[in-house]
């Protein structure tokens, strides 16, 4: 392979990774926007989404991939709602430290619950590995094509939901000002519930895509949480399109960065970018939220 197509292939891999980070970051930033806290357990939604699919594809269900995805997404959505009902709703007006430690505890609990049931080992869905298809000298496998298509679909769906529906409007209102939204007669409970479902389903979709392309392990959530967070910081916290852009940038930077530094540090690139952004200014590319 000549060097130009090698760089292009690396950039493509970066975009693929970036699509997945964008899905994680959009869910994280959505909950931040509506409830004003960083959900430390967001990574566990990513991981459980992937494991729910593993559950439905294995014994005793034995469903094929396409049939196992809907129940896996539905269950992750339920898990998101359950998190809110059991932990975050009772703490809605608690101080930040309390909320954050609770989220941390929840994350530890869920991560180890997955390890308890499925073990710490790295797993795959056991699908047949298909050879990549060649496009203009670049290789793309089936799961990778799915990553691009599904991300585009998700972004379209999020756009329609947030900017073209009543529910989306109420979520944006909450994100601007919770108290004001409530006294304006917006059904805040419904909007918060919807935010959790969307955040969890986006996490699950991203987790499943990642697991299809690579593999699954109980640690996959926490690693990606840091990247999703770096992506939201780049984009301006609470900003959906910023999260999308930030995710793509992190993916590109990671994959292109490995051309210059040891691959052992790949997972650290997002953190370094985060520090650089912080040293410069907390919100860069898309701009600050109005509050």
């Amino acid at each position: 392979m000549d060097s130009i197509s090698y760089y292009l292939q690396t950039a493509l891999n970066g975009i693929l990774a970036g699509c997945i980070y964008a899905l994680f970051a959009m869910g994280l930033t959505l909950i931040y926007g509506v409830l004003n806290f960083v959900n430390f357990a967001h990574g566990e939604l990513i991981m459980w989404g992937a494991y729910f699919l593993f559950l439905f594809m294995g014994e005793p269900f034995g469903l094929p991939l396409y049939a196992a995805i809907p129940p896996a997404l539905a269950l992750t959505g339920c898990l998101g709602v359950a998190m809110d009902f059991s932990v975050f709703r009772p703490l809605r007006w608690a101080n930040r430290l309390t909320l954050l430690i609770a989220a941390m505890g929840l994350s530890v609990f869920l991560r180890n619950a997955a390890q308890f049931f499925w073990g710490a080992e790295v797993r795959t869905y056991g699908l047949e590995v298909s050879a990549g298809t060649r496009f203009f000298g670049l290789y793309l496998t089936m799961p990778q094509m799915a990553i691009i298509l599904v991300t585009l679909l998700c972004v379209g769906a999020v756009y329609l939901l947030f900017f073209r529906s009543r529910l989306g409007k109420s979520m944006r209102a909450l994100s601007d000002n919770l108290d004001l939204a409530r006294i304006s007669g917006i059904d805040t409970k419904r909007a918060i519930l919807a935010a959790w479902v969307i955040s969890a389903v986006l996490a699950a979709i991203g987790g499943i895509l990642l697991a299809l392309d690579t593999n699954l392990s109980p640690e996959m959530g926490i690693i990606n949480l840091i990247k999703a967070f770096a992506a939201t910081l780049i984009g301006g916290v609470g900003n959906l399109w910023g999260a999308l852009l930030g995710g793509l940038l992190i993916g590109l930077a990671e994959n292109l960065g490995v051309l210059f530094i040891s691959p052992g540090y790949k997972d650290g690139i997002a953190f370094v970018i985060m520090v650089i952004i912080l040293l410069a200014r907390p919100y860069v590319i898309v701009g600050e939220r109005s509050d």
Binding site: V87, L99, A102, L106, V108, F109, Q115
Partner: peptide
């Protein structure tokens, strides 16, 4: 023993959550 590690961590995680909800 293979299950004990994750189980213990589950207890720790749950303890954190329960403490925060009931006695922060």
């Amino acid at each position: 023993t293979r299950l004990l590690g994750p189980l213990q961590q589950m207890v720790f995680g749950l303890l954190l959550v329960v403490l925060m909800v009931f006695r922060p």
